[in-house]
Structure formats: structure tokens, C-alpha cells
Nucleic acid binder design. Sequence first.
DNA 1: GCCAACGTTGGC
DNA 2: GCCAACGTTGGC
Length: 151
Amino acid sequence: MNYFIFKTEPSGYSIDDLKRDKKTSWGGIRNYQARNILRDDVKVGDLVIIYHSSCEVPAAVGVANVLKTGYGDPSQFDKKSHYFDAGSKQNDPRWFAVAIAFTEKFKNPISLPAMRLESSLSNMRLLARGNRLSVFPISKRHFETIRTLGA
DNA sequence: GCCAACGTTGGC
DNA sequence: GCCAACGTTGGC
């Protein structure tokens, strides 16, 4: 079992949207490092911290679980989509998505500054200077710390 | 809106 | 393959 953080801008898709939808296809990722993680590392049953970025209070806001491993992100083939990629082939997709389901919404979302105050989270990638990846693994210890603080 | 950090692109 | 220019992310 592996653990990840997925970032999202709540103005686009929030934990409340996921709670309402119960499950969703997590795509629109156009960064090769993140793509590789979605394609190769995210497995069914893995757990994901959902993080709200670029918003009033950037924070870890809940948990999701993985329903389906990496598949070609449909939006890359949709000419009308912002994520359309003319260079990607149906039989050899360039970009990947995974399906996730809502697990829980935190009663106590943990803001970015609050996470920085937590010494046990100090070496987490989310807090690293200049980190811009929107999908990345975290340790079981970090996952459980965040889940416990948020519950 | 500013700016630091990082990724991508393209000329050479 | 180097590197400058440009684009994007995301906190503040």
C-alpha cells in the first residue's frame, strides 16, 4: 500500500465536489514526473491526501482511495478540452489519469502553515522549497500524521 | 499582482 | 548537449 498527495485548486475541483460525486477521474496532469507517478506507481487501494492549492487557505482537506490504476486521460483526445494534446495517440497515450473515490473529508483541515509547524512532517515533499508537483508519494508515517490531525 | 522556483522549448 | 527565453505553479 502506498500513499500520495494530490493537489487541486478548489475553484476547479474541491473535496466537496469529490464528496458529492463519490468518485472521479483524476486527470488533466500535464507534467512528465507526475505522469510517471500516475502511470507506474498509483495502485488500487492506495490512499491519497487531497490538498487544496492556490486558494485562500491552502490545506490538506481529506482522503481518497484509488479505484483504478493509470489509463489514458480522455481529455488529451478531446479537441475542445483545455488539455487536448494533438501529439498523443489513442494506442499510445502520453498522459494518464487514475480513478479515485471519496473516503473522508477532514473535520479539521490542516493548513500549510500548520503542517510547517508539525516537526514530524518537516521532511515531507509538500513542504519542500519550490515543490510544484501536483502528484507525489508521501510516507505512511506522514499520511497517518495528517489523517490523525485532520480527523 | 508579485515573484521565486522549476519545467519546457528551441536556437545554436 | 548547452543555455537563454519563456511559461506555469503556487504561496504570499
